[in-house]
Design a protein around this nucleic acid. Structure first.
Lengths: 193, 193
DNA sequence: GGTGCCATGTAACGCGTTACATGATTAT
DNA sequence: ATAATCATGTAACGCGTTACATGGCACC
């Protein structure tokens, strides 16, 4: 979704061609180390946007250099963009890989949940350390986007670390007075739909 | 990645068929409201796992009922699972849709970054409110997975809200002493005629 | 005879990725 | 000459989604 709307927004500034859109997107998010969009995605997304009528191919320039297919936003595209600005971004599903790993480590014979937690915690601390260093080196005059992203990352890493502590505490509780594991019965589970 | 490894882990417990894997996955993550895996994904993922040699079709049961294709994990599959447990989950890229929206609202004529922020903040507060209620109603005896997920959600929502405050503060700073917007230079190649 | 659960899939699409391919201009 | 940059794509795959489709069994 992000790239789709980014293209729409950048074309709302002025018509552009694919290669230029890629550069503009990178400038927008503060460099390719933050978000490296592949050319393939730009061009296929442009195709889809064109097919949806949100964008049109305006012209093909070729003055001395290689071909440039210039795209422009349509009124429908502007409407789409405006309604995107006016709504909040949806809850990023809690489709968390670590959560699945943790739950599996509790259920699978031979796996060690405390080790899993410790491995993850070490990685989070390492990342926090790295990001904090980057953050200190960042220049607030020229790298606004980069700094905002770093700040967000720091806050989420801290949230993850606090959560890991809570998880461990709760596992200890459960351990002291163990519960029936949520076991799957092959048949006859009531489910609503 | 999550579903792929979840299937591997659940098959490490014992051989199962597709439908059963789906139910087991839901039990693992604490209900379909947390993570609704579609049958299509289960079956296609099983196909891919089989093709990679991490899983084999063991038998086809048919005792009175419908067909059941029973899958089992292979030694290669166990190795894969073990190495997954032993490593941390990668940094979920900061591919944040709101971030893109914010940056665009700063760059696109006619968009209002403060309104964008306010819309997002309202949605986050609403979600925080809902999740807190759910959290209070949750039964710690039977819904461990659900509670852990809710706690994680709360912490991340709080982190997002704090981050939004920081963003606003930094925008105010920038506003007081405005900087050159990260503008994309057309990179004008000298061209002759 | 319907509804709902058990169980299996296929088809098509969206987003994103890697890898491959072409060709032109510009700077060294 | 050759490397870098400009500029465009195609093909195939992975993960995830929606929609569609089939068929048996059990219960009321």
């Amino acid at each position: 979704m992000s790239v789709r709307f980014a293209i729409l927004g950048l074309l709302a500034q002025r018509p552009r061609h694919g290669y230029e859109l890629r550069a503009a997107f990178e400038a927008l998010v503060g460099g390719e180390e933050n978000w490296d969009v592949k050319p393939a995605q730009i061009y296929t997304t442009l195709d889809r946007l064109e097919e949806s009528g949100l964008v049109t191919e305006e012209a093909v320039e070729q003055e001395g250099g290689p071909e440039k297919r210039i795209y422009a936003i349509t009124p429908a595209g502007r409407a789409e963009l405006e309604s995107w600005f006016a709504t909040s971004v949806g809850s990023e599903h809690q489709r968390d890989e670590f959560f699945v790993k943790l739950m599996l480590s509790l259920a699978v014979d031979g796996a060690n949940p405390y080790k899993v937690i410790q491995t993850q915690r070490a990685a989070l601390y390492q990342r926090l350390h790295d990001v904090t260093l980057q953050r200190q080196r960042a220049d607030p005059q020229t790298e606004l986007a980069h700094i905002l992203l770093l700040d967000k990352t720091v806050m989420h890493l801290e949230a993850d670390l606090r959560w890991l502590d809570m998880v461990e505490a709760r596992l200890d509780e459960v351990r002291r007075q163990p519960l029936p594991q949520p076991e799957v019965k092959p048949r006859g589970r009531p489910r609503r739909r």
